[in-house]
Every structure is written in structure tokens, then in C-alpha cells.
Amino acid sequence: MKWSYMDHWRSPSPNGPIDQWQTYDSMDRFLKQVAAVGYDAIDTFDHRYFTIIDQYGSVANYQEFVQERGLERIVNTFHAAAYDQRNYAPHIASTHDNILEDFRVTMDRWSGIQLDNIIVMPATLYYDMEPVTEDKIKTTAELWNKVGAITLDAGVKLTCHHEFFCGIQSKEELDTFYAYTDPALVNLFVDTAQHCIASVDPVEFYEKYADRVTGFHFKDTRHQDLVGDYRRRPDAELMGTTTPRWFHEMGDEGGLVDFEAFMRAVVRNGYDGWLSVEHDKANKLGGDHAESTAIARWYAKNVLEKVAREEAAK
């Protein structure tokens, strides 16, 4: 059972909060902290490519820097696209050529290392896609089938991560999407908190599509979106009505995700890939990314790994 940590980080500096990409020293400290509490690897964002080239010369060099601090490798990248109905919208076919070219370029940029997955939010913001119709989901699925072929050609799986505020987030929308996508080309990346916020039970959802799942974000939330924040303009993620902070590390108090049940399901389904931990924006409301990262790993080691052993012994 191997754990990877997804990228998000803030720490104080003399000139205000910084992320780990600020200096070699801040990256060094980030990686050492992640390694110290027993994570085996990291995930990152592929738009970090430009910083990586500037500071490390190549993606492979950066991965070497990661490895020198006791971590195995970079497992996944998240492709955070700037969705826009005018030029980059999966449900609008006229934008597909632009998107496909973006993935060709991206896969080339990251060809220096072996990734497991490239993770995408498969739809635009909900309000840019609504009304969400079967036709729009079908168009979206057609795009990702093509993107999946491009990434697979580069030896990387395409996998979809459904933010609670994206155009494919309800149970019905998800079912439609996975019915129209090719299981050989389009995979699923289950973010426990995002589905929980969208009132989709992460365990049930995972069980249903377990054979298409290529990874997870183990992440908690204290809130479900019961007021329609998912379609809030101009933003749901930071400006939602429900809360200024949607996401918490697993193992924190007040969380809604049943991680023990989730872990049992992961073991029952024979999943043998990496387990990623994420708690984006954990610094909101006075939170501390370093501590959250330790607490989540404590929970993984002291609770989830034991549950996994129990389940495996059954």
C-alpha cells in the first residue's frame, strides 16, 4: 500500500505565504516533510512544467530532486485547464481540436518521466454547461475518448476527477458520462470529498465503477452542498455560500467521508495502485498544510492500513 501526496502547500515566509515552488529551499523543505511522515511519492500539477524548466531544467531533473529526498517518484499530474466556452469546453465540439492539441503538447512535455495518470476535471464549471443534457455529456465523452487515446499512446492513463462544481457531478450525470466513455481509454479518479459534497456516496460510486478506477484523492469535507453552491456564479470553490473552506484532511474531526468503509471497498476490489492524499486549501481559516499532511498520514497509517489488513484477511 503506497501513499502519494498531492502538491498543495503553503508556508509562511518573511514576505507572506509562499508555496513550495518559491525557492529550492522551500521545495527541499516541502519534500522532506512529506517524506518524513511516510509518504512514498508525490503528485503534482502539469502546469508546473514552466517552473520546473526554469528551476530544474527538465521534468526528469525535478523528479531526481524529489528522489534525492527519499521519495520514490512523481505518480500523477493534474491537468488544471482554463475552461472557457469560447475555446476550451468539452461539451462544445468546436473547441475539441484546441483541447486535443493541448494534450499532445502536454504529454510531450512530460515524456521525460513515467507517470501513472493524467487527471482531468472532465467538464467545465457547472454554470457554463447547464442545462446539462445527455447530448452535452455525450459530446464531452467523445472528447475524452480521443484524449484518452493520446495519453495512452504516451503510456499514461487518462482519468477523470469530478469536482462538485463541474458539469458532471450528480449521480445521473456521472452514470451517463461513464456509459458514453470507453473503459479502455477513460478512467475514473475518485475524490472522496468532492463526491460527498455533491451528495454522491463515494463508497457506492466507487463500488459501481471499481474496474475503471485508477486512483483516489483521500480528502475529507465537513459540508454537503445543499444550497446549490455547485452552480454559484462566479465561483463555488472559494466563494461558496456554504463555507469558506470545503476541504479538510482525512482524520480531522467533523469529517463526513467514511474512510474506513471506503478503504475496505478499495481492498475488496483488489485495487493495487497508488493512494493519493489531498487537502487543497487546507490553509484556509488558519489551517496549517504541514500539520494537515501529517495528520492525514497518521490516519492512513494508524487507522486505514489496519482496516485494510483486516479486510484483506477476510
Binding site: K32, Q33, A35, A36, D288, A290, A294
Partner: peptide, 17 residues
């Protein structure tokens, strides 16, 4: 330390490696 969790984690890394 201004960042207690960070200091503990970095000390752990240092001892380990």
C-alpha cells in the same frame, strides 16, 4: 519554531536520512 509541525517533520527527515 514558527511552524511546529514543519520543524518536527524536518527533524524526523534529518534523523532518518
Amino acid at each position: 519554531s514558527p511552524e511546529p509541525a514543519t520543524s518536527a517533520m524536518l527533524n524526523a527527515w534529518y534523523l532518518t536520512h
